[in-house]
Write a protein that binds this DNA or RNA. Structure first.
Lengths: 335, 335
DNA sequence: TTGACGAATGTAATGGATTACAATTTAACT
DNA sequence: AGTTAAATTGTAATCCATTACATTCGTCAA
């Protein structure tokens, strides 16, 4: 492998000058610069990132820690984050926890030793967060940039960039109220967890604002996450119990798709008998029949703010502890 | 940051011994080993990956190069690949090309300098492949492991692990034939590209095997990729032209969902008037109404074979140039 | 008791880029 | 021409783990 010394020799300069040229320093004569560039070119020189990182004391990748990269908005999030990081020459490394939630502890512990520059937490299990706090602080102390994306963790001293779920769920409920619905169920509470808490709160508060009571029977828990299957199962169960509902606000588009399937399977019409809203703005929602009305989350904006946060953080500038991105309602035929 | 020397000092040994202990060498007395481990523990020592990689001359991450990580089986693929790589202590770095297809050239060129150990190509634009060949060879020559996942590139000397698309499409067509369908359209040809070629061939060959003619009017091109929207548009267009179809084999689940939406919007029933099969085995297919019959692709198996290939490659052992994974038909109500 | 051999440990070079500091050249001005 | 400040370039140390080679210690056999 050709290195700086080879280039230096060929260009009749020192390795320091080569380094200066290649890192774009201004203190090099144009003529010298040209010589070096030519030599590097001729030799096909490529800097060794390990050496550079070793010397600089920091790497060039950010890990995206997810619970399940396969579903919901996470694929989109990964895509947009990668694109944003590419703009500042950083790599996005994937860490999907899956069932191995304890791996998060491991990640925090070894972030530095793995040469990570930062951690985007997209699915920390909040139940554990309190016990993880010391590890987070230790990692942050070592210079790891830690940012929570898509989940509020400011309570634990972790800067967060999130969609305004409270407002989003409120918009969904208000939309349904405006359509004359009154028995508006919420599908997707995870009891005992902070995940999705704001969405369920948004539903609750919007109903209260409208002077309607909260019927606990109309708040449906899911345990297996925000997937279609859970939506189908919970909705079926509710219908089997003979519950009266005329609208469902689902915590995710996938839950909504399951709910719609269950409703149709029970011989109900959507939105005739029951209107349904999703959450997320997944691309295929528009091709369900009925097409899914949903709370669209601007993932590109989220990713961009994440990059901006990171840039500010690295530059030692002030950065916001909490950024909220306003979602928007997409009305389609399911409502 | 605490390093080997610090540990060595505390344990009253040399840095060499520390290194030996930490890399599990056998030439260390048990007693010494214990001292070193204790010292490392006490100091909270963590090896510096850059130094190690610099010395060893190779990194510990593999890049997954995709065209669009957001759709199709790619999120699932990323998830499973990451899980497999985790087993052998490698990281998965994401590179989504999006519209910047020319970035692939860049990636190949700088793979070594980025410290990559390998490249999983999940969406090389085959049109360019011939011109990319020299770069591939150069990268491979520098020790980069290059494997095509989910797309056959053996023709270019790149080992490939793929689903057997030919068989998959054949299964779909045969299933439809068995259901008495005869006007079986293929949705998702990309003319002038190798992408999806095997699937369209599978459709064609299955029809020929059954003694049926290929009607060019029943092969629908998509230009914008395998997304719902394209499926909707092409199907609508075909129906508007008054084409007679009684079944559609789509090249992806998303195309299928678009097709179904278009059919329903045209007042046709699925599968009554037109049966539809998807391709991929996307999780929400089961919650479309009608639920989508599809060719299920075993992505976990693909990922596992990719890991095995990589292990063999690194060990210098023989590895297969082409692995085909047999898909399976999932029959649901859309057929 | 000593030579020989194996086991354990140490010394120092190595991988490659960056950068503080030193040295040299050039420009500017009297 | 003679200084001095400014612009370039060079020297060498540094980041840290690994490992070839050298050395030391212990043990066994003659």
């Amino acid at each position: 492998m050709v290195n700086v010394l080879d280039v230096a020799e060929r260009a009749n300069v020192s390795s320091a000058t080569v380094s200066r040229v290649l890192s774009g320093s201004t203190l090099v004569r144009a003529e010298t610069r040209a010589k070096v560039v030519a030599a590097a070119e001729a030799l096909g020189y490529e800097p060794n990132s390990f050496a550079r990182n070793l010397r600089k004391g920091r790497g060039s990748s950010i890990a995206l820690v997810t619970g399940d990269i396969e579903h919901g908005i996470y694929p989109r999030l990964a895509k947009h984050l990668q694109r944003e990081l590419e703009l500042i020459n950083l790599n996005l490394v994937l860490f999907n926890l899956g069932h191995r939630q304890e791996r998060l502890r491991h990640m925090l512990q070894h972030a530095t030793s793995m040469g990570l520059r930062g951690l985007f937490l997209a699915s920390a299990d909040i139940a554990d967060m309190a016990s993880l706090k010391p590890l987070v602080d230790r990692a942050a102390g070592k210079g790891i940039a830690i940012l929570s994306v898509s989940q509020r963790l400011e309570g634990f001293g972790i800067d967060s960039i999130v969609h305004d779920d409270l407002a989003g769920a409120g918009m969904a409920v208000e939309h349904l109220l405006a359509r004359g619905r009154r028995a508006i169920a919420y599908l997707g509470r995870i009891s005992g967890s902070e995940v999705g808490r704001e969405r369920s709160l948004g539903h609750e508060q919007a109903l209260l604002r409208a002077g309607l009571p909260i019927d606990p029977v109309l708040v449906w828990d899911v345990r297996e996450g925000f997937r279609s299957e859970a939506g189908y199962r919970m909705t079926s169960a509710a219908l089997d119990r003979g519950l009266h509902v005329d609208a469902i606000v689902a915590a995710s588009d996938e839950l909504a798709s399951g709910a719609i399937a269950a409703l149709l399977d029970h011989g109900l019409s959507v939105p005739g008998d029951v209107a349904v809203t999703g959450f997320g703005g997944i691309s295929w929602g528009n091709y369900l029949r009925p097409a899914l009305s949903t709370i669209d989350l601007d993932v590109a904006a989220l990713a961009e703010r994440a990059r901006l946060w990171l840039e500010a953080h690295e530059a030692g500038e002030a950065h916001p502890a909490l950024v909220m991105i306003r979602p928007s309602l997409i009305v389609r035929s399911s409502t």
